[in-house]
Design a protein around this nucleic acid. Structure first.
Length: 493
RNA sequence: GGCGCAUUCGUCUAAGGGUUAGGACACGGGCCUUUCAAGCCCGUAGUAGGGGUUCGAGUCCCCUAUGCGCCA
């Protein structure tokens, strides 16, 4: 039997890294086994619906390269893939369960349930339904139904015994049935709860492996009971470790975007994209959250990950999300890009920052910055001076290390004269000329170049100087130096 | 509160009962160097605590602690 797995998000929020990792593991598992990856939308909670979220989820998956074989947009033989379009199915099967004696109608009013909860709270008991309607005589039930009273359908959980299942990651998990309450399967408005819809869909969509986050472990025994009630073979379960925020406190998905240090920490896939992370780096990084290949291999292509992925090597303990490591890996992936590719990816980031950038202008700059950026957005602060007509900086920054303003002025003036006289404004020629000048003047290279760097780029930290000057061109370089000379004259006066 | 899951360097992880407990990120130092990076070399640092089982425990069992999650 071929492997069929699904990612089943609710359109109640944008795609976050936790969801993305779950989707990724499902996708890897499917591809590894030559099976199918299905996208199913669990949109039965109308109150929490977030309008853009469906699009965001699909875009996020596509950005990461997790294309689905069945689901929205592509269809498939087991649709529809929106739960809101399958309501009759859930209703039908809820009632089948009632007929089979595995579930019952519950007519308890919200008021009675509230009183019950109140009382349990007072007695410090765990709140749970007291199964009042489960033991209601048939005639009474019929009467209530004839009256037209609203009802929900609840699962008739065995009053004793244990329910257990084998988890592919955690091993045997067992709970006592007394700890499971008679959960609602079908609400009074005819909408299913998560549990019912999930089990019915997984069955009819022929899902073979359910891979989802750890937090669903406590629900799984309920699902097992449902499968039993229906007489269906349950799928295999694999509960993935949760992703914790970098502090290790709390789930990553609940983390706030702005950290205590004021920095922006993305949590949504779209935020990572906007921050300039590469999808291939995210893919590689996310694969390593809770899974590893061996004791040393970390950089892996998509193909290698598909080839190597296995559930046996998924950890059972939670992992906290390391922005440091992601940044490093993203930088690594950026360095591996071919320069044309990188230039293309940089364009939108520079344009969004207000720079008049296009491929032809950026391409020559790429070799100067490729190994200096960790995210695509890092490039902005490094290259803005290429695109601005006027650059600004503190005049004091023009003074060389261990030099006076007067000495700095002299050095810059002589540098200017040499550059004016240069027949070719090539990187190599510029460097040779200025190195010779430093030697002539008895200056350290860093002293002279530091002055020029500020004059030309307006920065203390910038891409390699001579290459930058060559790209900037003779006219613009000299104009900036003239401006700097004036500033230095004032300082030296 | 009840139930569940988890615990190896700061972080991510490796170690089919027997290794000087390995690698990566981060951090520190050095080399290279026009700044910053990148690259290379070196280093700091870990089996939560306590009991067992065993010739031998990071690895198996129990307890405690702590963290996380689920149910309201």
């Amino acid at each position: 039997m071929s492997v069929r797995v699904r990612f089943a998000p609710s359109p109640t929020g944008y795609l976050h890294v936790g969801g993305a990792r779950t989707a990724l593991f499902n996708w890897l598992f499917a591809r590894h086994h030559g099976g199918s990856f299905i996208l199913r939308i669990e949109d039965t909670d109308r109150t929490r619906y977030v309008p853009d979220s469906l699009e965001d989820i699909m875009e996020g998956l596509k950005w990461l390269g997790l294309e689905w074989d069945e689901g929205p947009g592509v269809g498939g033989p087991y649709g529809p893939y929106f739960q809101s379009q399958r309501l009759e199915l859930y209703q039908k099967y809820a009632h089948i369960l009632v007929e089979r004696g595995w579930a019952y109608k519950c007519f308890c009013s919200p008021e009675r349930l509230e009183r019950l909860r109140e009382e349990q709270r007072r007695k410090k008991q765990p709140p749970s339904y007291d199964r009042y309607c489960r033991f209601l005589p048939d005639e009474e039930k019929k009467a209530l139904e004839a009256e037209g009273r609203n009802y929900v359908i609840r699962l008739k959980v065995p009053l004793e015994g244990k329910t257990s299942f084998h988890d592919l990651i955690h091993g045997e998990i067992t709970v006592n049935n007394v700890n499971i309450e008679d959960l609602i399967l079908l609400k009074s408005d005819g909408y299913p709860t998560y549990h019912l819809a999930n089990v019915v869909d997984d069955h009819f969509m022929k899902i073979t492996h359910v891979m989802r986050a750890d937090e669903w472990i406590p629900s799984t025994p309920k699902h097992i009971l449902l499968y039993k009630g229906f007489g269906w073979e349950p799928p295999q379960f694999a509960h993935l470790p949760v992703i914790l925020s970098p502090t290790g406190k709390g789930k990553m998905s609940k983390r706030k975007t702005v950290g205590p240090d004021g920095r922006i920490y993305p949590v949504l896939v779209r935020e990572f994209k906007e921050a300039g992370y590469l999808p291939e780096a995210m893919f590689n990084f996310l694969a390593l959250v809770g899974w590893s290949y061996d004791d040393r291999t970390e950089i892996m292509t998509k193909e290698q990950l598909v080839e190597r992925f296995s559930l046996e090597r998924v950890k059972s303990s939670p992992a906290s999300f390391s922005y440091d490591k992601l940044e490093w890996m993203n930088g690594y992936y950026i360095r591996q890009l071919n320069p044309d590719d990188l230039a293309n990816r940089l364009v939108p980031f520079l344009q969004r920052a207000g720079l008049q950038a296009d491929f032809s202008k950026i391409r020559p700059i790429v070799p100067l910055i490729q190994e200096r950026i960790k995210t695509l957005s890092d490039a902005v602060a490094l290259v803005d001076f290429f695109f601005q007509e006027a650059i600004s900086y503190e005049p004091e920054a023009l003074v060389g290390d261990n030099m006076t303003p007067r000495e700095s002025l002299e050095a810059l003036r002589r540098a200017y004269e040499r550059l004016v006289a240069l027949p070719s404004f090539e990187e190599k020629a510029i460097e040779e000329s200025l190195r010779a000048l430093a030697a002539d003047m008895g200056l350290k290279a860093g002293q002279l170049f530091g002055i020029i760097r500020t004059a030309v780029t307006g920065k203390k930290v910038a891409p390699p100087l001579f290459g930058s000057m060559a790209i900037l061109g003779k006219d613009r370089t000299l104009a900036r130096m003239e401006k700097a000379l004036k500033l230095l004259e004032k300082l030296a006066a």
